[in-house]
Write a protein that binds this DNA or RNA. Sequence first.
DNA 1: CGGCGGCTCGGAAACGCTTCCGTCACATCT
DNA 2: AGATGTGACGGAAGCGTTTCCGAGCCGCCG
Lengths: 337, 337
Amino acid sequence: MSTTRPPVNMSDVAARAGVGMATVSRALNGTPGVSDATRDRIRAIAHEIGYVVSPEASRLARGATGRIGVVVSHLSRWFFAEMLDAIETTLRQAGHEILLYQVPDPASRHRFFEELPARRKVDAVIVVGLPVDLREQQQLESMGVHIVATGGQTASFPYVRIDDEEASRLAVDHLVNLGHTRIGMIEATSLDTPDWPLKLGRSEGYHASLRAAGIDPAPELVVTVPWGGENGADAMTRLLSLRTPPTAVFAHSDEIALGAIRTLRRLDLDVPADMSIIGIDDHPLAALSDLTTIAQSVPEQGRLAAQMTLELLAGRESVESVTVPVHLELRRSTRRL
Amino acid sequence: MSTTRPPVNMSDVAARAGVGMATVSRALNGTPGVSDATRDRIRAIAHEIGYVVSPEASRLARGATGRIGVVVSHLSRWFFAEMLDAIETTLRQAGHEILLYQVPDPASRHRFFEELPARRKVDAVIVVGLPVDLREQQQLESMGVHIVATGGQTASFPYVRIDDEEASRLAVDHLVNLGHTRIGMIEATSLDTPDWPLKLGRSEGYHASLRAAGIDPAPELVVTVPWGGENGADAMTRLLSLRTPPTAVFAHSDEIALGAIRTLRRLDLDVPADMSIIGIDDHPLAALSDLTTIAQSVPEQGRLAAQMTLELLAGRESVESVTVPVHLELRRSTRRL
DNA sequence: CGGCGGCTCGGAAACGCTTCCGTCACATCT
DNA sequence: AGATGTGACGGAAGCGTTTCCGAGCCGCCG
């Protein structure tokens, strides 16, 4: 098949440039101790004969991997993909590589931490949308790998997140301000880590808002389903079958909300005339569906997480966790009662 | 901060087991030449003292990276994320690691191939939704890295894709069968690689279908916009401002279609009563929007691409490209005229 | 009973780089 | 002018594995 290249090593460059390997190494790495002239010449030669340092060898000698592991639960979901996008961009700009791990279920998650696939393979790990328990944390830290979390977890290590309770409060406040009093909530749980309900305080925010408005939360108005649009649709059906259905619904996320809307549409119920719906996320398709939502900037969160990781790697002893703001994105799925 | 572990090396295991390093290496790698008893003992010891081989050193000595690069244009888009999901899963199962590269614009794409970031860092590259020109291909192959493409490109190297022309034909045939004769098309181009129009034969399919039905394609009925839901919405506006607007529209993708639908909804036009819409993809939110579409299995394509890569790596001289089937997913956005 | 083949296993040479040290030449200071 | 400092650069020792080769060892055949 392809003619595998004749290996080109650093010594070849050295020979060609008439200098020692040490100098080549310094020249290529930008390490001081080489005259500019020599450096340029070496670089030119390296480029000319298509030489690139072997990362394996380099890392072995250097002792660091230059890689950052990103652990994600569900690549195919918008939130995670968007996050990964931002992380990738930031990290690559900083010259790091990202090693991707998808950990969709408890089993593989356990395996990940147990078999330590990350061991020595990465300098740090960014965990997105995944709980990390204390033991796992210590496991990683004892190997000297830093951890940063994003997408839900608050922890003793640095994280970036939104204030889920506030986001929910904002959403429900909006509904309340519109005159609604019978407000339903579709709460989602993570399918794979049921131990770690996706609520994250979202139902707390819901209740807090109602309480603040002097509305007594009716238990039957909050229905809990596994995450996913289809389940959002089902939840809406359940809400509609109540003796007194709500006049507005706060959905755990935009995907859930979109599912709920489909149920309404199929029943020929108009949004927002017959029912107000609000979600959380500002999924790109929320805009296309005219869905009012609480927007959070996922790219921002990804960028921050990546930056925090870089700082940790740069030796900063500790970096502060951050909570990014959310805001109401008013569209056409909610209306005054 | 964390107590960085005292490095544990293979020699430690060897000492502890009272054998030579060579034996430890063999034992741990499953290489023959070690008695089962010894092998078990060594493995136990390794596990006990928490030893894991250093991938750097291993690879350096072995000469292969064990990694596969995945080059993606837009992580945050459903199609790519879904694809990556499947690829990751398949590859990891096979014990490979995936090194992620995002190449959003021509500049970074050029850089990727030019600086050969993949050089020696990966054994193979899976390119998703990206054109690879001949020079770039040769560049990679000359370094001995295999290439597999998916998500659009047909090439001289192995690829997996759908038949875009057939998909389009299916879509338009459906509209024709419903009695529509004035059928519009919203064609999308890639924002970043305008040289590589995203049409991929989709407009050919459109025209072919019309021609087969004896319908004369009116040029003004196909509008071309950059990829994206918002642009789909704009395109719909343009289509509606025609002297004689179409009665049905074939959209390049579901996202585009969803954008088009928003325009219609805002204008109080009913889908499908006033306008039939069909897309391509079967985006998860298409189901939530009751959008009729031509479904393609992205996970399937990802899985196949990954498998082909594995076969290549396993030494199979050549693997055959595959075209996965598509089918009409009938929902509620199209209707008999 | 000697010899031979097959297993196990150990020594040590790569693998390709980084980096510590030390050398050298030259400029600067006294 | 001699002493000293400074910047460039080379030699070579690792970094932690893999793997080639060869050395024991045991069982079995003739």
